[in-house]
Computed example of a mutant assay.
Amino acid sequence: MSLQHYLQLAYKESRLTSAADLAAFQHVTGTLQRGRENLILVYGGSFNPPHRGHIDVLLSGLAPSVGALGIVVLPSEDFHLRHKVAKSHPEFFLRMERRAEIWAAIVPAHSRDRVWVWASTWYPFKTFTDALVRLTKADGFELAFSHLIGPDNVNPDDPLDILPYRLPRILVSNRGRHVATGFSSDGSPTVWKGFGEWSRCANDKGQAEDSDTVLWTCVGADGARGYYLQSAGPAYADISSTNLREMFVRSQGLDEGRLNQLSTETLLGFLAPMLP
């Protein structure tokens, strides 16, 4: 059965029936499978603005070793973003709908059939996830949601404590940024509170992943599960949304009023050097 079919039912049950809401996932083509866990990643963040490091993390979540059915990009609410940037160039402020518009435009074409952008508020999101899990389970499918985050956002004392809602899975990808303190001397990720030791996953042939990408997994209480996608590819330690905001404010004189009056095409023009 197609994922899109259940997405439509869950969106409507969450009272997200506007043309924009329903159009957000019409390109998604995933198919649920019985006898396995169908994983949907939730890639949340401020994305003020999005950049190539964000896209690298997104694409790493679609790696075959992860086996994700799809990814929903979840820009943070405006009230949360205002609090976050209060002391770091608050004049550069893209409203939630603008960040969603930018994301919808920059997802690489070859991945758009597995990615959609949540353009509504956070409030119906839990209703949506609960509905989707229940609707698919009624038809014999096992579906689970997992956070997708970068290593700089991991709280080892409570890794599942991520806005806006706790999910039973978390996938950490260092494809966009490497944090050395996230790993032990033997090369495995550091142990999180409430979780067991990490195990290196095997691929479909029963062998460890190649040296370019290693997937680790650990198990926590109440069925929680953690994943760490360790990549040997380039990590953009020199790029961050904070640094980009500072650059745009100084070089372009951009502020909240102007930013949110510009067309999406013009915004993409400003961001082009920071995108793949």
Rank of each mutant, 00 (worst) to 15 (best):
K126M: 04
G233K: 12
P49H: 07
S211E: 14
D113G: 04
I71L: 11
T190C: 14
N174Q: 12
W118I: 07
G233A: 14
H147L: 09
F141V: 02
E13Y: 10
W118G: 04
R258K: 13
V154Q: 00
F128C: 01
V117D: 01
S251E: 15
S199K: 13
T213Q: 09
D161W: 09
F125L: 08
H80K: 07
F47W: 12
E13Q: 15
A86C: 03
A144G: 00
H147C: 01
L132Y: 10
A23V: 04
L16S: 11
I40Y: 02
T264D: 11
Y228H: 08
M96T: 12
G140P: 01
G70C: 10
S146N: 04
S18A: 04
A180W: 02
M96W: 13
S251V: 07
T266C: 03
R98D: 06
D152C: 11
E256N: 05
G220A: 05
A63E: 13
P75C: 06
T136S: 13
R112L: 07
L244E: 05
W103V: 06
L268A: 09
H147P: 00
R166I: 00
K205M: 11
W103P: 05
Q261W: 01
H89C: 14
R15M: 11
L163I: 09
G220R: 11
E265Q: 15
Q252F: 12
G187Q: 06
I149Y: 07
Q207Y: 05
P151M: 07
S65Q: 15
L268F: 08
G196N: 05
D139W: 07
S111I: 02
L16R: 12
G182V: 02
A144Q: 14
D238A: 12
T29G: 06
S251K: 14
R112V: 08
